[in-house]
Amino acid sequence: MVSVGVAITLGPADVSLVNVRDILLNHLAGADIPIRVSKEAIVWDDRLPRALVAATCGAGLGVCGVILQSLLRNPLADPYVLGISSGASTGAVVVAILGVGPAALGIPGGAFIGSIASFAVVLLIARLAGGSDDKVILAGIAVTQLFSALTSFVVFAFADSDATRGVMFWLLGSLEGVRWDDVALCGLAVLGGIGFCLLRAQVLDAFAFGDDVASSLGVSVRRERIMFMTVTALLTATLVSVAGAIGFVGLVLPHAARFFTGPLHVRLVPVTALIGATFMVWVDAISRVAFSPSPLPVGVATALIGVPVFIAIMFRRRRAQ
């Protein structure tokens, strides 16, 4: 909450924490504190929804990383190992450039459909190849490359310069133009995902020791894996459809959270969500201010920060061993 409040004050317009407090009291508590209309519009209509969407994206992607690293028993697993991000990119490009689908669908709707389609292809390939964890990862890599190639082909063959610029900015991850309906959509998806993980935390603990151990503990391995992967796919698809492709959050933050909580998922899931939310709020605020008036795409900023952090985590794990 402190991070969101401070992040809202950052920017070319002069907004203080007192202004933020007064605006929130006016809207949420029915107060009637005099506030300039311009400041109210900046805080309530622009910066606050953006900060909240950033927080939900960080929390949701971090939790998805926790799920996949447990299910696949792979410390390098993240939400994009299932090809969801590349599918979202293809869906967004098809809608934006080719104009496929109704006008009301828009880029977010196309991205969501593309995400679900790519996830379905990954599951189909993995099932036909044997259905093991390794097959899921390999299928995800193959589908990622396939949909990335389709995205590049559509942009190269059919897009003009203006359309290409707009789509590429979205593909790099962008929180520009998010509104309160986006906050509600992402918030409900993330709260549902976190609640599901907390209710099934012991199942995730069992998966961390392998399928055989989980089965011996009474876990229906096949059913639980499908449920968790479906939740991960739906959550990632929802977040990507709103914010674009944001990498390294689901890969790095679960490792960082384990330093504080250990491996038990009843603690790991909420702490990862909290760290992810705080991280994304600050990454978005810095990327928005550092290159003003042209904001840096938030996906670029997460990669620039995430890569060295992940390398540091790898070296620390090696020293610990």
Rank of each mutant, 00 (worst) to 15 (best):
S16F: 14
L17Y: 03
V20K: 03
V20P: 01
R21C: 02
R21N: 01
I23C: 01
I23D: 04
I23Y: 05
L24S: 04
L24M: 07
L25E: 08
N26H: 08
N26D: 00
H27N: 02
H27E: 03
H27R: 11
L28S: 01
A29H: 01
G30R: 04
G30T: 02
A31G: 05
D32H: 13
V37C: 10
V37Y: 14
S38G: 13
S38V: 15
K39G: 02
K39W: 15
E40P: 01
I42F: 13
W44R: 06
W44C: 00
D46E: 15
D46M: 15
R47T: 02
L48Y: 00
P49H: 08
R50A: 11
A51F: 09
A54E: 00
A55F: 14
A55R: 07
T56C: 15
C57T: 05
C57H: 04
C57A: 15
C57K: 08
A59H: 03
A59N: 04
G60V: 12
G60L: 15
G60M: 15
G62C: 03
V63R: 06
V63T: 08
C64R: 09
G65A: 03
V66P: 05
I67W: 09
Q69T: 06
Q69V: 07
S70F: 09
L71H: 06
L72F: 15
R73L: 14
N74H: 11
N74T: 08
P75Y: 13
A77V: 07
P79V: 12
Y80L: 15
Y80H: 12
V81M: 14
G83M: 11
I84D: 00
I84Y: 04
I84F: 06
S85K: 11
S86M: 10
S86D: 04
G87T: 04
G87V: 09
A88H: 09
G91R: 07
A92P: 01
V93P: 03
V93G: 04
V93T: 07
V94P: 06
V95N: 04
I97H: 00
L98G: 07
L98W: 08
L98Y: 10
G99C: 05
P102Q: 10
A104E: 07
L105E: 00
G106A: 12
G106D: 09
I107A: 10
P108A: 01
P108S: 03
G109F: 14
G110P: 01
G110N: 07
G110F: 08
A111V: 07
G114D: 09
S115E: 11
S118G: 04
S118L: 14
F119H: 04
F119G: 05
F119I: 09
A120G: 04
V122I: 09
L128I: 03
L128P: 00
A129L: 14
G130W: 15
G131C: 06
K135P: 07
K135A: 11
G140K: 11
A142R: 03
Q145N: 10
Q145S: 11
A149Q: 08
L150E: 00
L150Q: 00
T151Q: 08
T151K: 04
F153P: 02
F153D: 05
F153M: 12
V154D: 01
V155K: 04
V155S: 11
A157S: 10
F158W: 11
